[in-house]
Simulated scan of single mutants.
Amino acid sequence: MALDPLFQPFALGDLTLKNRIVMAPLTRSRASAGTDAPNDLNVDYYRQRAGAGLIIAEATQISQQGQGYVATPGIYTSEQVEGWRKVTKAVHQEGGRIFLQLWHVGRISHTSLQPNGGAPVAPSAIKAKGQTYTKQGRVDFSMPRALEAEEIPGIIRGYLNAAENAERAGFDGVELHAANGYLLDQFLRDGANKRQDAYGGSVDNRTRLTIEALLTLCRVFPKERVGIRLSPVSHANDLEDSNPTALYDYLVRELDALKIAYMHVIEGETQGPRDPQGFDFGAMRKSFHGAYMANNGYDGALAAEAVSEGRADFVAFGRAFISNPDLPERLRQGAPLTPDDKDTWYGGGAEGYTTYPTLEQAKA
Rank of each mutant, 00 (worst) to 15 (best):
A198L: 09
T207W: 03
F171M: 11
A33F: 09
F141P: 07
V174M: 12
K86Y: 01
T210V: 12
A362L: 13
L26P: 04
Y250Q: 06
D4G: 13
D4I: 10
K129E: 06
G272Q: 02
A122Y: 01
Y46W: 09
F279G: 05
L176C: 11
P25M: 11
D197N: 02
I108H: 04
F321E: 06
S124V: 11
P244E: 01
P38E: 03
P276G: 08
G13F: 05
M284H: 05
Q61L: 10
H289I: 13
D275S: 02
M293Q: 11
S234L: 05
G158F: 07
D275L: 08
V203Q: 04
N296F: 04
T354P: 15
N205H: 10
I21W: 07
D14A: 12
R107D: 04
G310E: 12
V139N: 01
T35C: 11
M293C: 15
S323I: 13
A169R: 03
P115M: 05
K129N: 11
T338I: 15
G130A: 03
E269T: 05
I228C: 03
P244M: 01
V220L: 07
I266D: 00
A257F: 10
K286W: 06
G201Y: 01
T72Y: 02
K223Y: 11
V87E: 02
I266L: 06
A364K: 11
H110D: 04
A320R: 14
T134P: 09
Q271W: 12
R30V: 12
A31M: 05
F314W: 15
A316N: 03
S231T: 07
N19L: 06
N116I: 08
P273N: 06
A50L: 01
W103P: 01
F187V: 08
H289L: 15
P5C: 15
T344C: 11
T60L: 07
V121N: 00
S124A: 13
Q48T: 14
F171C: 13
T358C: 09
A350C: 13
D36L: 04
Q277W: 06
Y182D: 07
P325W: 03
K129F: 10
T354M: 09
G347D: 00
K89W: 02
H104I: 05
Y298C: 14
A119G: 03
N165T: 12
V203F: 10
P244S: 02
G310P: 09
T245Q: 09
G352V: 06
D172S: 08
T77K: 00
S109E: 00
S124P: 11
Q131D: 04
A119N: 07
H235R: 15
V226F: 09
L209A: 09
N193A: 13
D197G: 14
A119F: 03
L215C: 12
G96Q: 00
P153A: 08
A166W: 00
Q277S: 07
N296E: 04
E351G: 12
V315K: 06
G53Y: 03
M23S: 07
Y298M: 13
D197I: 13
R330C: 10
E94H: 01
T344N: 10
T134S: 15
T216Q: 10
